[in-house]
Amino acid sequence: MKKRRPVLLPALALLIALPAYADRYPVPKNAPYQEECASCHMAYPPQLLDANSWRAVMNGLPKHFGTDASVDEKHRVPIVDFLTRNAGGGKTGVTVDASGKPLLRISETARFVRKHRELSAATFKRASIKSPANCGACHTGAAEGDYNDDHVRIPK
């Protein structure tokens, strides 16, 4: 009986920890991504779009959701490499619109829409939130890649 404990305990710990890992999207360290992209918005987890979507985003930076986010080629190329290397994953799936074109907004992907279906457009527009681009407004651990439901606090 005593002999089974070392196996049982880590297995139990893993089971308890698993749900918390389900909504974890830590952003791997990357200097040009932080410098060129995360000065205007949070460093979105590359895992939340597929590689084709990231390529499309990075090909349209001079007109990036209504702002000029131009990045010179010296920095753009390594960022594309970083984003596509870390892109996608099982839960994100293929991020295309109905016509098959790569989606540019994480907030339009099927997983995002499903996960946020209980929230109205008005909630996202609150002064304390501003837009779905502001993950950290509700996901208190977003900066550390923690999107677990238990750590969501929707501001008034």
Binding site: A38, S39, C40, H41, M42, F65, G66, T67, I129, K130, S131, A133, N134, A137
Partner: peptide, 9 residues
């Protein structure tokens, strides 16, 4: 703060 994303500047 960024007027669109609210990111501190």
């Amino acid at each position: 703060r960024h007027v669109k994303t609210d990111k501190p500047i």
